[in-house]
Amino acid sequence: MGSEDSFNRGDGGDAGRGLRLHASNPSKVLRARARGTCSWCGNIVEWFDRFDGGRIPLTPMPFPSHRVPRRHQWSVDRGMAHSGTVGDQCRIPHPAICPALEHIGQEPELARMTQVLGVNTRKLIDSGRFVPPSEVPDDEDEVEQPEPENAAADGNIRHVLSHGSVLKICPGRIEDLQCVADAEGTGRRCENPVFDASEGGWTQVDIPPAAGRNGKAILLTYRGRMWAWEIQPLDYMDALRWLWQKCPVHQNAPEAHDRELIDFSTARHAPFILAERPRGYEPVRETGESGGGAPQFSEAERTQCAADGCWNGTIVPVGEGWLCWQCAKRARTRETVRRKWQKNPQPVRRLPRAPIPEQQAAEELSDATALFVHDASPTESLIDDGFTAWDENTPF
């Protein structure tokens, strides 16, 4: 049974009837908890797991595909949201029509929907059912990934979780990240942590580039690098356990609470970037064991690409002047072109110019002079005579 039809109803409709998620279902989100309201405009949205591991809020009802721009068409299959459409209907991401955002150059088809949602937001505010936040979102990513309620509750510390190219930011410290499943028998949220020191370590990762002058200033301040907890799971399911915020006991259990891991944004989360490695954790794991099987740890040294403006690097031992594969490809192309021109230099071809006879050259020169020499007008003559008389009568 798919996740869209598998949940324990709490509205009394199917009292006493227990439904469960199928073990093969790719999404573990209960549909009863997936419907909520946008924290920026108050309109109803439905949350779905994306095919790339993230989450996205979609409209609660589908729309005809021919009336929605192609880049805003999303479809749902077994609780997973995919970009594009399969049939003649599709769903629209809520950030594309959220009235709390300023949509510059919005398509006419979506502008009407945004206007309708804006009117509904005004009605919710007037009736007291929705209190808008004091600030407005900066972009669609902030609407798609709202900050959790307990963000930075324990001081100004929020650790970043890294897995490959995926960067997630925690609401607080990495060891305080709590499981989102319900404990068996109690019906309350599981108190087990997601953190497992044996499945990762602190390492330096590249800071994602951000647009604008502020984004460049952040990269220059931290030299494009920050410290993050990189998970090193044994298999893909263990990686999903971290990204889906589950403890080892409830790895395949349905989600009973909202996830608090959101995508890291350089502009929004700049105050939480770590320039120094946190203390009190296990360092980066090193190959080799000693002392009765106890693993040895050390920090991996990273070599940055020697090309100007390139932030790529490697932890593999390389020589001085090492270039990443992108810069090395550009260097080979330039060297090939340079050698080609050195081997077969191509002379600069100039178009022959026919000699100009002396009489024709003299006529062209007189025509050019005539553009600047002309007969004086009566007014100019009076002015010139006045200046001449003034010069003759002026004593020195």
Rank of each mutant, 00 (worst) to 15 (best):
A15K: 10
G16Q: 02
G16A: 00
R17L: 08
G18C: 08
L19G: 00
L21G: 00
H22K: 08
H22S: 13
N25I: 05
N25V: 07
N25T: 09
P26Q: 02
S27N: 00
K28A: 06
V29R: 02
L30T: 01
R31A: 10
R31K: 01
A32H: 03
A32L: 04
A34I: 00
R35C: 03
G36Y: 00
G36N: 05
G36C: 07
T37V: 11
C38D: 02
C38L: 02
C38Y: 03
S39C: 09
W40N: 05
W40S: 06
W40G: 03
C41N: 07
N43I: 02
I44K: 09
E46P: 00
F48R: 10
G53R: 04
G54D: 03
G54I: 02
G54P: 00
P57Q: 05
P57Y: 01
L58F: 03
P60I: 08
M61P: 03
M61S: 11
P64Q: 12
P64K: 11
S65A: 15
S65C: 11
R70P: 03
R71P: 11
R71C: 11
H72R: 11
H72K: 10
W74T: 06
S75R: 09
S75T: 11
S75V: 06
D77G: 02
D77M: 04
R78G: 04
R78S: 06
G79E: 01
G79R: 06
H82P: 03
V86G: 06
V86C: 04
V86P: 00
V86L: 08
V86A: 08
G87Y: 02
Q89V: 14
Q89E: 13
C90Y: 08
R91N: 14
R91K: 14
P93M: 15
P93L: 15
H94G: 08
P95S: 12
P99T: 12
A100N: 06
L101C: 09
L101I: 10
E102M: 10
I104W: 15
I104D: 15
G105W: 10
G105L: 09
Q106C: 14
E107I: 12
P108Y: 15
L110V: 14
